[in-house]
Nucleic acid binder design. Structure first.
Length: 773
DNA sequence: CAGTGAGCGAGCTTCCGCTTGACTT
């Protein structure tokens, strides 16, 4: 019989802790929750005090049976799961499932994985906190009720397969509402005036600097009027104001801030950041990567201190402890930091190195001095009018943490690069060298990126570090949201400049509205969001989570009974579900666009069985209505009558080639040309099915034919069904509608018939083996 | 692979938070 068994949540943590403890301790991991409500039914008995029925999910059966075997060999058990709601519940589930003897169980917790913290925890065992466990059960059951009652409503009233939930529906709402703000945004323009001034300094050296006018003109004529005044004006420095500024370093990384910075600085997606961080964590290079805490252990702060002094000297050291401002933070772990701060560079792939470097820099910077900046504002007056030019310069007096780390803004375009002004004196006369005015437009609010959506959710206290990445993938998988790039459009703007003491007008063009990796709502998101807001306002409220969190806290403090809280919620929520199912009509987002001038029938857009469609004529009419699907880029919300009618011009017969018709249309996989029963895809952005010419269509056909020539590597007389082809991922064998990979060491052109059959058989067996596993 | 959108009905879909691997096209 061995002595002590410690159970933690993560295997990497188990490995580390085992090193701190003596021979009398074995540390194992339970891999998170081992018990949950069944995925396949509601699993809550609403007539029996909301009694949940828990099961051990398929993927946890193995670990549970291993744990069961293991506990027989030990005498004392230490449940060392995280010290938060979920961690406490995991400890309780372990206790129940493993049927541990209550006299032999100790509940312990540590917020940091350091030797002192672990040893200290062992000296302070306690019992399982059932209030905290109940707070978790309330959270779990509330989420199940909301998710599993709302989703079926959507299946009946909108479309099968959809989903709704406390977190995802709010995330979708944010994106839908932002898109509508953008659609309704009216851009206005004004004229911004800039100038460049010259003067000779004490040493008779020519100096120059740039300045901007303190007013913007909303009319072209006023702008010209002002510019003409400038031509006749004298310029002089009116005043110089110097102001010291301090900039403090940002707090060490949490999951959310790491995701944001990795997105801005390294271009990583939220999911990418998490997988890379996971690898760094598993190889012991960084602390736990799913955390909402900005806290650093004392040991870490000491190590960072040394690292700052070694790298930058004492002048740059300023230790600080950060406190979290995040709503609902549970702070069960430290901030994300290098395990060993003295290691500046790690082995690993490029991405791992980059992410580590980012974490290392941010961690050190957090314990460095403020940056001291001197901001100079010079005001330049005109002799013949009251407007002033303003020149702003910034000089870094002491760089402090900026020596190492600079937090990127969301929008790099708005980052006014620091201007250094020459030494200026009040009363100095200036001559104007350059003068220009450009028409500038107000910009719509920015669309969400993955990272800015995470920040917004965190701000609202919605979602947890472990769920930010999954939320983003869920709302995309359900078809609510799509992440993509969209091209901008050209825009003309007015530009005036001074030349030979005259003002010259010019029309320039610029590209605007180009979007990269932004989250766009689909039509279905708009329809579902409107439906949910109409009938379930409370759940979609941005404060819903914050409100129920207050209740969970009271349950955790033992002030209220969890079943009472759930009962109160269910008694108001469930009747609305029932009422919505029985009394509301199906929601299709239908919008009537106008009348078709040919048939004189109404034209409408709505969500159909297979997606958004335009319909001409009513379903009840004698004559069946005509349908056309909305192609990518057109939305129910914004499509015009003209655009809708245009969709009915397909399929389009554009002429005969080699005695056969060429027909252009749009199918499930996008626009295509059909000729002689062969399909030729049209690439988006290159060819438009509504306007493609006969000549261009023949070109497309010829291109594809040329490509197909290279498609066949080999055919066999023994069996025409067996072929070696060149595919997107290289050469492969195709046989009876199945494709088989060719091993890398084999030259496909030299394959014989028998060798192919051999490959097919061996690959087939491998597939079977995998299925069994 | 490149139709579809009438209507009926069977059987399916779904939540949020803890954890890691196992996945191919």
């Amino acid at each position: 019989m061995e002595e002590n068994l410690v159970i933690v949540e993560s295997p990497a943590k188990a490995k580390t802790i085992e090193k701190f403890l003596g021979k009398d301790f074995k540390v194992v991991s339970c891999y998170g929750h081992i018990r949950d409500l069944s995925k396949n039914d509601f699993s809550i008995d609403v007539n029996n005090n909301y009694k949940p029925s828990y099961i051990i999910p398929e993927d946890k059966k193995k670990i549970v049976s291993e744990l069961k075997k293991l506990i027989k060999k030990f005498n004392m058990f230490w449940l060392a799961t995280d010290e938060d709601r979920e961690g406490e519940a995991i400890a309780w589930h372990l206790y129940e499932v493993l049927q541990l003897n209550s006299h032999k169980v100790n509940r312990i917790a540590f917020h940091e994985i350091t030797k002192t913290a672990v040893l200290k925890a062992l000296e302070n065992p306690r019992n399982i906190d059932f209030n905290l466990v109940n707070a978790q059960q309330a959270r779990r059951i509330l989420d199940r009720i909301v998710g599993y009652e709302l989703s079926p409503v959507l299946w009946k009233k909108v479309k099968p397969g959809l989903s709704a939930g406390r977190v995802q529906s709010v995330a979708v709402r944010l994106i839908v509402e932002r898109e509508r703000e953008i659609l309704n945004f009216k851009s206005t323009s004004s004229f911004k005036v800039n100038a460049k001034f010259n003067f000779y300094d004490d040493k008779n050296q020519l100096q120059s600097f740039k300045a901007e006018l303190n007013t913007k003109f909303d009319e072209k004529n006023k702008t010209i009027e002002f510019l003409n005044k400038c031509l006749k004006s004298d310029f002089k420095i009116d005043s110089i104001v110097k102001k010291p500024l301090k900039k403090s370093p940002p707090a060490p990384f949490t999951t959310s801030t790491l995701q944001q910075e990795a997105s801005r600085k390294l271009g990583f997606s939220v999911a990418q950041t998490m997988t890379i961080a996971q690898r760094l964590y598993e190889s012991g290079k960084i602390t736990y990567m799913r955390t909402d805490s900005v806290n650093l252990s004392n040991e870490a702060i000491n190590a960072i201190k040394d690292a700052v002094i070694n790298n930058f000297g004492k002048n740059y050291l300023q230790t600080r402890q950060y406190t979290t401002k995040t709503k609902g933070a549970q702070e069960a772990h430290e901030a994300i930091r290098p395990t060993y701060v003295n290691i500046q560079e790690i082995d690993g792939n490029n991405q791992e190195k980059k992410l580590y470097e980012l974490i290392w820099k941010r961690t050190l910077a957090s314990q460095m001095t403020d940056a001291e900046i001197e901001k100079t504002t010079a005001t330049i007056s005109l002799s013949n009018t009251n407007e002033k030019f303003i020149a702003i310069g910034e000089v870094i007096k002491f760089d402090g943490f900026l020596k190492l780390y600079y937090e990127s803004p969301d929008d790099e375009d708005n980052d006014n690069s620091k201007i250094i002004l020459p030494a200026l004196k009040e009363g100095q006369n200036l001559t104007i060298e350059e003068l220009f005015a450009a028409e500038r437009f107000t910009h719509y609010p920015p669309r969400y990126t993955e990272a800015t959506l995470v920040r917004k959710l965190e701000e609202l206290g919605i979602g947890r570090p472990s769920t930010y990445a999954p939320i983003i993938s869920t709302i995309q998988q359900r078809g609510y949201v799509i992440k993509e790039d969209r091209p901008g459009t050209e825009r003309k703007y007015l530009y005036f400049y001074m030349k030979n003491n005259k003002i010259i007008e010019e029309i320039k063009t610029e590209n605007t509205g180009y979007e990269k990796n932004k989250l766009y709502p689909n039509d279905i998101a708009m329809v579902v969001n409107d439906f949910l807001i109409e009938h379930f306002t409370n759940i979609l409220d941005f404060n819903f989570t914050a409100n129920v969190e207050k209740d969970f806290d009271e349950i955790a403090e033992g002030k209220i009974d969890w079943t009472k809280m759930i009962d109160k919620f269910y008694k108001t929520f469930h009747p609305v579900v029932e009422k919505t199912i029985t009394t509301t009509k199906k929601s299709t987002g239908e919008r009537v666009l106008g009348i078709d001038p040919v048939s004189k029938k109404p034209v409408m857009v709505k969500i159909g069985r297979y997606g958004p469609i335009v319909q001409i004529g009513d379903t009840n009419d004698e004559e069946k209505p005509k349908f056309a699907s909305l192609p990518k880029g057109l939305m129910i919300e914004t499509i015009t009558l003209e655009q809708a009618l245009n969709l009915f011009t397909l399929p389009r017969n554009i002429g005969k080639f080699e005695d056969k018709d060429i027909v252009v249309s749009i199918g499930r996989f996008g626009p295509y040309i059909r000729h002689n029963n062969t399909f030729y895809s049209l690439k988006k952005g290159v060819d438009d099915p509504y306007s493609i010419t006969y000549e261009r269509a023949i070109e497309v056909i010829a291109e594809k034919r040329e490509k197909d020539k290279n498609k066949y590597i080999k055919k066999f007389e023994e069996d025409p069904e067996l072929q070696i082809l060149n595919g997107r991922w290289g050469p492969y064998i195709t046989y009876k509608n199945n494709n088989y990979k060719i091993p890398k060491n084999i030259n496909p052109a030299e394959l014989t018939y028998n060798k192919c059959i051999e490959i097919i058989k061996s690959v087939g067996e491998q597939k079977k083996k995998k299925k069994k596993k």
